[in-house]
Design a binder for these strands. Structure first.
Lengths: 252, 252
DNA sequence: ACCTGAACACCGTTCAAGT
DNA sequence: ACCTGAACACCGTTCAAGT
């Protein structure tokens, strides 16, 4: 059902770079980081390794393409929930994105990335690796542009655009990397998450008091915290730092 | 010269977990990420794979141990250069660390990590991976404690210690990950770096104006920026956000 | 307790050969 | 132009056997 081509067999569906990337994302989503192998792709697509390499250079390039595809989708599809808690206006349907403040726009982009990583746990490690290995590849470029555009309407002097945007992007990527749920399905469930937090919290309380006094002091906060909320708080801290530093124009 | 044991042959020097980790760091420093293999270790240490695995569980554990060793060294050895530009006082030699403001302390720790990554380029990717895979392992714990301690003396309400410290740590790790020089020796030299920046800057100016107006606008800043200085500016932005949000005690 | 070294299962990638 | 599939070089890891 819902097919454009007449064949139902996936084997005869014509092999294309796009289809390979798509299958790669499926494999990564289903079974995590180590599941994307050339062999897995060939069996899933019904071909041989040579066919894969005809379309895609090498494995790292495929990983990059998979990340880029997911990131692009996350950045172009605006989330329907708003970043800040505010009255839900049924009338603000069509130009909501344009009407939002730069801060709201930044929060929306950041949360889009956060949620994309939550949906695709492999993306965290992949993003982190991509950033160190290819800091200015298409993935980083897209993110930078999405954050930089609202930054440029924030009252920051143009000479500081690059540094300011860098700070936001670095925070966002660092936070999503560390915050991402573990790849194992055990940690995905609600109770699994709670058990993990409880275990970590207890581990911190049992640390050597001389070596780790701070970690012991915040063990309780760790157990009770919400990742997404903490992420937003962090964004707001950085935004406050930016607007404070460049004492914003107090009126239009 | 400068030996404690009498044998000059490294082969008969007794195999220990410590020595394996040490050799791992040497291999990583010398030839980057992909150079650390069991085979390379065995030839370098004059043993077989079984001997390695008697001491170290598996390869990921060794990578973690290597990162932990380098991070621990970076965090305990205070850098002699000061974070902010200020008159060099020849008298402030012994209690300098204790006398500094919390902000200075945070800057010092952050720069210590930044410089550690600069000295050990493999550390960036390793840190990033470690953080997503084992967010509360010894490496992250150490960094968190080092940042959290000064945060706790910053006037931030205790209930916000965890979130505030998280924000700083996430920024620091994200920034060091993206900022780290490429692993290839070509990019390590001064001129190689300049060429890289010029190439990236030009690439940005040639981007599609409709899709990437912001990146085109900041292409020049990219070419002229200094990574370390930008890193410090980012730290200061976050610190400003923190102190502004918790309107600091205006007097002692 | 500590180490040896052959063996296993599994990678990514290449390439002559086909269509 | 696009695909096949055997083959290559290289991994991490295990394990019976030695000392």
């Amino acid at each position: 059902m819902a097919t454009r081509t007449r064949q139902s067999q996936r084997r005869r569906q014509m092999l294309t770079r796009e289809r390979i990337v798509e299958t790669a994302v499926e494999l990564l989503d289903a079974s995590g980081d180590g599941a994307l192998t050339v062999r897995a792709l060939t069996t899933r697509l019904g071909t041989g390794p040579g066919a894969i390499y005809w379309h895609i250079g090498n494995m790292d390039e495929l990983l990059d393409a998979a990340a880029d595809a997911v990131i692009a989708a996350a950045l172009t599809t605006p989330r329907d929930e708003t970043a800040t808690t505010q009255p839900d206006g049924a009338a603000t349907t069509h130009l909501d994105r344009a009407a939002a403040t730069p801060q709201d726009e930044i929060r929306a982009v950041a949360l889009g990335l956060f949620d994309a990583v939550a949906e695709h746990p492999w993306l965290a490690a992949q993003l982190a690796l991509h950033i160190t290995r290819n800091p200015w590849g298409p993935v980083t470029l897209r993110i930078f542009e999405s954050i930089g555009r609202p930054v440029s309407t924030l009252g920051v002097p143009q000479a500081d655009w690059f540094t300011t945007t860098s700070t936001l992007v670095h925070y966002i990527l660092g936070a999503t990397a560390q915050t991402s749920q573990s790849d194992e399905p055990a940690a995905q469930t609600e109770t699994g998450r709670a058990e993990f937090l409880a275990a970590a919290s207890k581990a911190w309380r049992d640390l050597d008091p001389d070596e780790y006094p701070f970690m012991r002091a915040i063990a309780d906060q760790m157990r009770e915290h919400d990742d997404r909320e903490q992420f937003l708080t962090g964004i707001n801290l950085v935004l406050t730092g930016i607007t404070t530093t460049h004492h914003p124009p107090t009126d239009p």
